[in-house]
């Protein structure tokens, strides 16, 4: 019994210690942001690696998720003769939930893991130490551009995911199952509100972007500088980011759509 308690205590302390370290780390990264404005080229470079290179997986996944939504939604709606609402259903599911959440999960797997591994290996090969000794602080030089690029990329990727998903739903609903084109689009236009649905979805994806990139860069920076340490950190990034996103999503949804 005491052994179990002790384990729990140690685990709790360890968790809060890392959370504290991650918060100090984040504040240091944020402090380095003003200097980054003068060197925006560094951010653009990272936008390419983090955002542009994630496009393929986002577009393909978005298309399939939209198609599945179209298929499943049609089967349910058709029983009530409400298949004309398919457009609303697909678009609402995507902009409110699936767009931000699935895009963030894919982002964690594609870009987050790469960020952790890259930063972890830079640490393991003494590149970060080397920079410090050249009087270049790695936080503003290496971490901050990646963090900013991640936070900018995430909402854009989520928006692209949702847009492509709607097109996927359109292909299946209108193209294959014969839903009326006019009804599909006009109901979507009429029922989806800019501030309640789209804006809330964007807010969600910005928050997910901060959470996912923060975890990814922190895990890399905090990794034990060995091959095993970096591999563990990469795994932790994907696991922790996924859990954090789903948890934060519940909280945000409860606040936004009560």
């Amino acid at each position: 019994m005491t052994g179990w308690l002790r384990y729990l205590g140690r685990y709790g302390l360890h968790f809060f210690e890392r959370l504290g370290r991650a918060s100090i780390f984040l504040s240091q990264v944020l402090l380095g942001l003003p200097r980054l404005i003068l060197r925006f080229r560094l951010v653009i470079q990272q936008l390419y690696f983090i955002g542009v290179l994630s496009l393929l997986i986002i577009v393909v996944s978005g298309l399939f998720v939209g198609m599945v939504l179209g298929l499943q939604g049609y089967n349910t709606l058709v029983d009530f003769g409400a298949e004309e609402s398919l457009g609303v259903m697909v678009a609402l599911s995507l902009v409110r939930e699936l767009g931000p959440v699935v895009a963030a999960l894919l982002f964690a797997g594609r870009a987050g893991s790469a960020l952790t591994a890259e930063i972890g290996l830079m640490k393991a090969t003494e590149q970060l130490s080397g920079m410090e000794m050249m009087a270049v602080d790695p936080l503003p030089r290496v971490i901050a551009p990646r963090f900013v690029a991640g936070v900018i990329s995430m909402p854009l990727l989520a928006a692209i995911f949702s847009a492509v998903g709607v097109i996927g739903g359109y292909f299946v609903g209108v193209g294959l199952l014969g839903v009326d084109t006019g009804a599909f689009w006009s109901q979507m236009q009429a029922k989806i509100s800019w501030s309640d649905d789209i804006l809330n979805g964007v807010i969600k994806s910005v928050v997910f972007g901060v959470v996912a990139t923060w975890i990814a860069v922190f895990e890399g920076y905090d990794a034990i500088p060995t091959s095993e340490g970096v591999s563990r950190a990469t795994t932790r990034t994907v696991v922790h980011t996924s859990l954090a996103i789903l948890g934060v999503d519940f909280v945000l949804t409860a606040l936004m759509f009560e």
Partner: peptide, 13 residues
């Protein structure tokens, strides 16, 4: 540190 140079074992390029 700007006036110090350091050569790491791995090179750290």
């Amino acid at each position: 540190r700007k006036r110090m140079g350091m050569l790491f074992q791995s090179g750290a390029l």
